[in-house]
């Protein structure tokens, strides 16, 4: 990974006191002990016997099912959040309406609500027994809790604000001049969005989607409650990690964790590679 010689835009040479090196060392030690070393151990555990444990894991039907289910649910949640996120961001930035500030504050709520509370809340409303809407929905043949819709909802809930948080500042920054210019040149709303707005927010959108994806693939607490955690039916990858570990199949637990961790680290790396480019483009 390349390293800039001087701070971009400001190449002031400064004396480096001994404190600089103390701070640097302290920060590196802290991050290595807290994150880097532990995370790297997962890889070490997984490859302790070469590719053996990865191979065993991927031939375990309950694990492959869990991985597939995880991907299906995450993709659905991300699609929903992307559509909702783009629409909501445009509404929050481009329009003024009563309750706008309240809505904008509430949107952030899912980030600070415990996944367990999210699960509980969904069960209280959509649970088949005793939920507010659950029994009615199930009478019409639509099961939410202990089924895929509930798991998608739980996943969408916890990653709801991620796209919006990326888009809102970018939309505010680009302003409405370009959109108005497009309008005065004859472009309709759809054309303006596709040709002008979307290219301007493209990288922020990709960034938000990647973050949502990482968060969705890794959701645990909320999904554990709404899914019922039935192996081979509603068990996702993270739930499978818990079960395998507690069933003393630690190699499988580590290998599955390794796969999940790889995806999330890959997401972070993609995002960190994208970020400087977005800033430069603006």
């Amino acid at each position: 990974m390349g390293e800039p010689v001087a701070a971009p835009g400001r190449s002031r040479s400064r004396r480096r006191g001994p404190l600089t090196y103390v701070f640097r060392l302290l920060v590196i030690t802290y991050l290595v002990l807290l994150v880097a070393w532990p995370v790297s151990l997962v890889a070490k555990e997984t490859f302790a016997n070469g590719l053996e444990s990865l191979r065993t894991t991927l031939s375990d039907p309950s694990v492959t099912f869990a991985l597939k289910l995880t991907v299906i649910i995450a993709v659905q949640a991300v699609v929903i959040n992307t559509v909702f996120g783009v629409g909501m961001s445009l509404l929050l930035v481009r329009y003024r309406f009563p309750g706008r500030r309240l809505l904008s504050a509430l949107i952030d709520l899912p980030l600070s609500v415990s996944p367990v509370v999210v699960g509980l809340a969904l069960v209280l409303v959509y649970g088949g027994r005793g939920g507010w809407f659950g029994p009615t929905l199930e009478d019409h043949g639509f099961q939410v809790i202990f089924a895929t819709p509930g798991m998608v909802m739980a996943t969408a809930f916890v990653s709801l604000p991620l796209v919006i948080r990326e888009l809102v500042p970018v939309l505010e920054e680009v302003g409405t001049d370009q959109e108005q210019a497009a309008k005065s040149l004859g472009a309709n709303a759809v054309q303006t969005f596709r040709r002008i707005t979307l290219p301007a927010i493209k990288w922020a959108l990709v960034y938000g989607v990647v973050l949502s994806l990482a968060r969705s693939l890794g959701e645990f607490g909320a999904v554990k409650i709404v899914s019922g955690n039935f192996e081979g039916q509603t068990q996702t990858a993270t739930l499978s990690v818990e079960q395998k570990y507690q069933d003393f199949q630690q190699a499988t637990a580590y290998a599955t964790s390794f796969l999940l961790a790889s995806v999330s680290v890959a997401c972070i790396v993609v995002v960190s590679l994208l970020r400087p480019r977005t800033e430069e483009k603006r």
């Binding site: 001049d177 370009q178 108005q180 210019a181 497009a182 309008k183 005065s184 004859g186 309709n188 002008i196």
Partner: peptide
């Protein structure tokens, strides 16, 4: 009439250039 239908050319103070084009 909507701005699209007025057939006017509008030039903005801060150019409103389409940066990605």
């Amino acid at each position: 009439l909507s701005p699209q239908k007025r057939n006017v050319g509008f030039v903005f103070q801060h150019y409103a250039a389409f940066k990605h084009l």
